[in-house]
């Protein structure tokens, strides 16, 4: 990208300029993008590199529970796990954040008090986003006023797919404002966007509208995060920074369950956006079961043998 900062400031001046800009982005060749992601997935991460990768991945986890059956008890248990993922090993780092529904934010804030763990809340009529804007904004404000310092919003996929990019943009801007000091993660729900061209456009749209993070999925739609989708998003944040100087984070969420998966994502980050993104402020994993596999593998590396599912704690 060679555009300058000034070029982008008024891209969203009208529906036509925004559309022109997004459709002017270079296309993504599906075969090539998938081949690149598959090639990077063959990197062999062993010994010391694996140990560092696992600890970094633990620090990047947004430990998540987004169920209708969530209760304050469940959320408190999740927060305890977030603070001390491995109670037997004080050298094991904490996760980056817990991610809950707005009604659970207050409970989570209490439970992580005194730690560096962030409280993220999904908002804006998660996961479908099918609610009036006023409701979405109220949802956001409620989560923020209960103490959430990160908001995971969903974009209006209906508007995006029907080409009403400015509507999507304005909605993100409004939510951004409702967030106040809280960081905004914008969920693209890439499983519903269907093409990599759309993923790239939605990524730029969200970044232009002020997203601090772009996130793949709600976890409620299949496919959720995939390596090629994350590759395209990492290319977008890399290009956005060279165009504007602003660094936006990336969060793949949903379907990342094993240490091997997590290390593949870290390789993707390392060789696409670069080492600046190998930081919990720039890259997160939206996951729950992943954490226990990371702990099992961490223990295996330290002791040379596998323990078992009863040796890591339930969330």
């Amino acid at each position: 990208m060679t555009s300058s900062v000034a070029d982008l400031s008024d891209v969203a001046r009208s529906a036509a300029t925004l559309r022109g800009f997004l459709h002017g982005l270079p296309g993504v060749d599906q075969v090539g993008a998938e081949a690149r992601a598959a090639a990077l997935a063959t990197r062999s991460i062993k010994t010391t590199a694996k140990a560092r990768g696992i600890d970094l991945a633990i620090r990047m986890v947004d430990l998540t529970t987004l169920e209708g059956a969530d209760t304050p008890g469940k959320v408190r248990a999740l927060c305890a796990k977030a603070r001390r993922p491995d109670p037997t090993d004080p050298s094991c780092p904490s996760v980056a954040a817990v991610c809950v529904y707005p009604s659970m934010v207050a409970t989570a804030v209490d439970a992580v008090a005194g730690s560096a763990i962030h409280v993220a809340s999904v908002a804006t009529a998660f996961p479908s986003g099918q609610a009036p804007l006023a409701v979405k904004l109220a949802d956001t404000r409620a989560a923020v006023s209960d103490g959430a310092d990160e908001i995971d919003m969903v974009i209006n996929r209906g508007a995006f797919l029907s080409g009403r990019y400015l509507d999507v943009y304005e909605e993100i801007v409004a939510v951004r404002e409702a967030c106040g000091e809280a960081h905004l993660k914008v969920i693209l729900e890439t499983g519903e966007l269907a093409t990599y061209d759309n993923v790239r456009r939605a990524s730029w749209l969200a970044m232009l509208a002020g997203a601090d993070f772009i996130k793949t999925s709600t976890g409620k739609v299949s496919p959720a995060a995939t390596l090629p989708v994350t590759l395209v998003m990492l290319e977008a944040v890399r290009d956005f920074r060279s165009a504007t100087g602003r660094t936006v984070g990336v969060k793949p969420a949903g379907g990342i369950r094993t240490t091997k998966d997590a290390l593949r994502y870290l390789v993707l980050v390392n060789e696409t956006a670069g080492e600046d993104w190998l930081d919990p402020d720039r890259f997160r994993f939206g996951a729950s079961s992943l954490l226990n596999d990371l702990l099992l593998q961490r223990d295996k590396l330290a002791t040379g043998r596998y323990s078992g599912p009863d040796y890591v704690t339930l969330d």
Binding site: R43, L56, L278, D279
Partner: peptide, 9 residues
């Protein structure tokens, strides 16, 4: 963070 890949021969 630098992410050095350990030798994997």
């Amino acid at each position: 963070m630098r992410f050095e890949y350990a030798p994997a021969p």
